[in-house]
Amino acid sequence: MRHIISVLLENESGALARLVGLFAQRGYNIDSLTVAPTEDATLSRLTLVTHGNDQVIEQITKQLHKLIEVVKLTDLNDAPHLERELMLVKVKASGAQRDEVKRCADIFRGQIIDVTASTYTVQLVGTSDKLDAFIQALTGTPILEVVRSGVSGIARGEKTLAL
């Protein structure tokens, strides 16, 4: 099963390498990973998407906890949560395709953020499923480039992952 794990990490050199190394070393999967400093400059917030059975996910969270620089973590799947991913797609947009891409982007509430005579660059934010669906919907339109940020997640309601 797919899990989204949120981690507060000391913003120190080597901390990220240690965390990523753990996954490689113990044979766990990383489907996506986003990381950036938080409002507190001493902390990084990291969102990691992985998959595995309950036993594997339990081991992943326990092993992450053992890393000295991991301050706190939560498996967002344990409670209602929000997830968002950003995607930039550069597509060929000429002739009839030009209108079609615009229509499609509108339907998905995407924005065209760069235009040339023959291309559009569409920005889209949503769940990973929604981004997948947009790619599917572009059938017939040649895709030149796709960039996805990986998932960022946060718990719904008053629950927080903070110090």
């Binding site: 036993q55 339990e58 081991q59 326990k62 092993q63 906890h65 053992k66």
Partner: peptide, 8 residues
């Protein structure tokens, strides 16, 4: 002492 050793 190590939770990761339990039920591994």
């Amino acid at each position: 002492i190590d939770p990761a050793s339990i039920s591994k």
